[in-house]
């Protein structure tokens, strides 16, 4: 099946279940993964990236069993990821930051220029240490779309940006599926961003999947509003 399918994924840290028998499937476009702190969003990304080992369950990307592959080899299968704390390499130029992903995923170097053009980063010869936060976030997006990505995991890509900068990033994120044909999974606490970017949303709470479906319906559901948005049924929703 095309897209990403998680089946019965459980992650345990001692007696705590960070993910508890989670099953969900994302097919295309930009999809959201939301929930309060400690819900298991980043754990889900870590399982997909190979940094955390799932006790049980499987994850298939376009029919390939992702969890059996070594973490660094998953990039070659088309997995890309950004982090809450951006990981732009300070000692390398912006160009080389993107280039190293291309060369370690056996992608054409021409895709580096395309990725940088897409995010609109000027003077890519500058070192990572010379870039502003917005520019570093743009480099991370470029690193995520270089080559032929199948799945792009974005972990709070707009963290620390002002509303204008977030708006620019939103346009880039929503354009990724059309630009490179990848499925985008977005984790963010900014509900305006999630609402504007995501067609489908999954909600986690204490490691359990509590809602899944179209963004509009999920964010309107009473259970989600109670668990995540902290809104009572009779209050007016901020959605």
């Amino acid at each position: 099946m095309a897209g990403l399918t998680l089946s019965n994924v459980t992650v345990r840290y001692g007696g705590v279940r960070s993910l508890d028998d989670v099953s969900m499937a994302f097919e295309r476009g930009v999809c959201g993964l939301i929930g309060p702190n400690g819900a298991g969003k980043t754990t889900t990304f870590n399982v997909l990236s190979g940094f955390t080992v799932a006790a049980t369950g499987s994850a298939e990307l376009d029919g390939m069993d992702l969890l059996r592959v070594a973490p660094h080899r998953r990039a070659r299968l088309g997995l890309r990821r950004s982090f809450q704390q951006e990981q732009v390499i300070r000692a390398l130029s912006a160009y080389d930051n993107v280039r190293l992903v291309a060369e370690h995923t056996r992608s054409a170097l021409t895709s580096v220029g395309r990725a940088l053009d897409y995010v609109g980063l000027a003077r890519a010869e500058r070192l990572g240490s010379e870039l502003t936060l917005l520019e570093r976030r743009l480099v991370e997006i470029a690193r995520c779309i270089v080559g032929q990505p199948r799945l792009v995991l974005l972990d709070e890509p707009a963290a620390g940006l002002d509303p204008t900068e977030s708006e620019r990033l939103l346009k880039l994120i929503t354009g990724i599926p059309d630009e490179v044909g990848a499925l985008v999974l977005l984790v963010d606490h900014d509900m305006d961003l999630v609402r504007a970017a995501c067609g489908t949303v999954a909600v986690l709470d204490f490691g359990k999947l509590i809602a899944f479906g179209s963004t509009h319906e999920v964010l309107a559901s009473a259970q989600v509003r109670r668990a995540y948005l902290g809104v009572e049924d009779d209050e007016e929703s901020a959605c």
Binding site: S49, H72, R80, Q87, V88, L100
Partner: peptide, 23 residues
């Protein structure tokens, strides 16, 4: 290529592995 991979490792193992680097 090795120099770029080393720089990525210095920045962080997680970021390096996510970039496809065999750390």
């Amino acid at each position: 290529r090795p120099g770029r991979a080393w720089a990525a490792i210095r920045q962080g193992d997680a970021g390096a592995m996510a970039s496809g680097i065999n750390t």
